[in-house]
């Protein structure tokens, strides 16, 4: 499905953020990337859909190297990768419905997009998704009128609107309270399972990762230092990922 080969990224020459990342994601299940802040989790996820350009290496998605694409080809590849953001990144002054339909922009001609004339299938799908994420009846609300949890639900629905082959989630719960975080992760996991979409999510909360992930990838200093099932995360591994010991008690 997705294979990263020898991926390197440095924003400033000589200060690498990602070092020789090799990672393969299967076509199913939730993969959680954990690690302390600043270890490159976010950069890694953003490299996948090229919101960040890697310095070197390959991003093989469905057999195509995304690292080499640009322009229209890159856009077409992005259409199949949905993304959920830490701060939701909704267009605040658009309605919930318009935000959902943003997920279809890659498939609809700009002319129709300007006129807000989307295919009725898309609108129907959007209404269904609003029900799935528990926001039925919110279609006309403006995005800036929603709470954090509600916004992230819209963010997930927008990503799913793309009918993606892969869902990326960049710290989707870091701006939310613990209860809402669990609800959002349940939603994300549920959507992935029901629609058969693999989810690649990064988070710093170990408990959430253990609870929801099928596979955990631990990162430290821009490298992968752990890769395995959540059961394999014992104190020794966590110390390798996060360093120090005091926080474990």
């Amino acid at each position: 499905m997705l294979t990263l080969k020898q991926l390197n990224k440095s924003y400033v020459p000589g200060k690498p953020v990602l070092v020789d990342i090799d990672l393969a994601i299967e076509a199913r299940g939730i993969t959680a990337i954990i690690g302390a802040s600043g270890t490159g989790k976010s950069t890694l996820i953003r490299c996948v859909n090229r919101l960040v350009d890697p310095t070197s290496g390959q991003i093989l998605f469905d057999g195509v190297d995304l690292a080499r694409l640009s322009g229209r080809a890159l856009r077409h590849a992005r259409r199949h990768i949905g993304m959920v953001f830490q701060e939701y990144n909704l267009v605040e002054r658009l309605s919930v419905m318009e935000n959902l339909l943003c997920g279809r922009l890659g498939f609809v001609s700009p002319w129709r997009a300007w006129r807000r004339s989307f295919p009725s299938d898309d609108v129907r799908q959007a209404h269904e998704l609003l029900e799935v994420v528990g926001l039925a009846g919110f279609a006309r609300q403006r995005a800036d009128a929603l709470s954090g949890g509600q916004r992230q639900r819209v963010g997930i629905a927008r990503a799913v609107m793309q009918k993606p082959k892969l869902l990326l989630a960049d710290e989707p719960t870091s701006s939310l309270d613990p209860k809402t975080s669990v609800e959002i992760m349940e939603l994300l996991a549920g959507v992935g399972r029901e629609r058969g979409i693999p989810v690649l999510v990064n988070m710093h909360d170990v408990d959430l990762a253990k609870r929801f992930a099928d596979r955990v990838v631990g990162m430290a200093g821009g490298r992968i230092v752990f890769d395995g099932p959540p059961d394999g995360l014992d104190d020794a591994e966590l110390t390798r990922i996060y360093g120090g010991q005091g926080w474990l008690q």
Binding site: R116, S117, S120, V123, R124, A126, H127, E128, G137, R140
Partner: peptide, 22 residues
């Protein structure tokens, strides 16, 4: 511009409150 007739496709949307911008 959003004249009343410019979004025919949207009007066919089911689910009770078919969506229109204004």
């Amino acid at each position: 511009m959003t004249s009343p007739t410019s979004a025919p496709v949207l009007r066919q949307a089911p689910a009770g409150d078919g969506w229109q911008r204004f």
